[in-house]
Design a protein around this nucleic acid. Structure first.
Length: 273
DNA sequence: ATAGGCCTGACG
DNA sequence: CGTCAGGCCTAT
């Protein structure tokens, strides 16, 4: 799925197209994607409201509306968002549409339907557990070495902790592997065994990998496209993810693939200790 | 902490 | 055909 760099790229692409736009009505054709409230309330509350801004926390997009509520969209594995003219034919797997005053519409398309929608009060995300429990976003100004060190205080494996959205929000399977390769840390290593300099290099790796991935507009492995139907380009800069048996770009040792947290995990057994 | 489930599509 | 996939929630 889209991880933080992909979701942020989508957010930036959508923003100029829909900021300030008024929503006439909403059409929800796959109600099970809706986490909160009921479909009836959801549709009613999306009538005749304007979109003030689009925010993002981790992999969650938050459309700030002018009725004190936020429309939450999580793209799951295959979710896409486009702004199309209402007369354009609907893509297969279109499950949700916001019809805008301008006769354009925001369309949510999701083949695997792992995406999630919700409409929550602007000041109370508690109806959506995953959103309410999100950890710090690594692009936020609150993400400092000191705060990061506080998060890294358990004795689970590095891979599992970096994947844990309630600690740090936005990293997924690709970028965790890239971050750990950059920081030269083994994904199986227990967080409790990290020394201060290693926490610092991990922090720096997170910042640097995300910045670079954002620069390349995210990573397209299978299906990711942004709001302009444009592929990411970071896949050609990956150093660990997907490179099983290929030489490590640092030391030449074949990249190894294992399973951790029931996810494919790629790392260099020599560089990453 | 770890599988299993949710879905469809791409690929071998 | 079977296997795998960028996520997340739940139930052991």
């Amino acid at each position: 799925m889209p991880e933080l760099p992909e979701v942020e790229t989508i957010r930036r692409g959508l923003l100029p197209k829909i900021k300030g736009q008024k929503i006439n009505s909403a059409i929800l054709t796959l109600p099970r994607l809706l986490e909160y409230p009921t479909p009836k309330q959801f549709i009613r509350r999306l009538k005749n409201v304007a979109i003030r801004d689009i925010g993002r926390h981790g992999k969650y997009l938050l459309f700030h509306l002018d009725n004190q509520s936020d429309l939450m969209i999580h793209l799951g594995m295959t979710g896409r968002l486009f702004v199309h003219s209402s007369n354009q034919p609907l893509d297969k797997h279109t499950h949700f549409r916001l019809l805008l005053h301008s006769s354009k519409e925001l369309r949510f398309i999701d083949a695997r339907t792992f995406g999630k929608l919700a409409l929550v009060p602007h000041n109370d995300y508690s109806p959506v557990i995953g959103l309410a429990h999100l950890g710090i976003d690594p692009l936020s100004s609150k993400f400092t070495l000191q705060e990061f060190a506080k998060i890294m205080d358990c004795n689970r494996q590095l891979k599992a902790v970096l994947m844990d959205q309630s600690r740090i929000a936005g990293l997924g399977n690709i970028y965790v592997d890239e971050v750990l390769h950059r920081a030269r840390l083994n994904p199986k290593k227990s967080v409790s065994r990290l020394k201060i300099p290693q926490i610092e290099s991990l922090f720096n790796a997170i910042c640097e990998i995300l910045k670079k991935a954002l620069h390349y507009r995210g990573t397209t492995i299978l299906s990711y496209v942004d709001s302009e139907v444009r592929y990411g380009e970071y896949q050609s800069h990956l150093k660990a993810y997907g490179r099983e048996n290929e030489p490590c770009l640092t030391c030449g040792t074949p990249i190894r693939r294992i399973f951790l947290v029931s996810r494919s995990t790629f790392y260099c057994p020599k560089c990453q200790k």
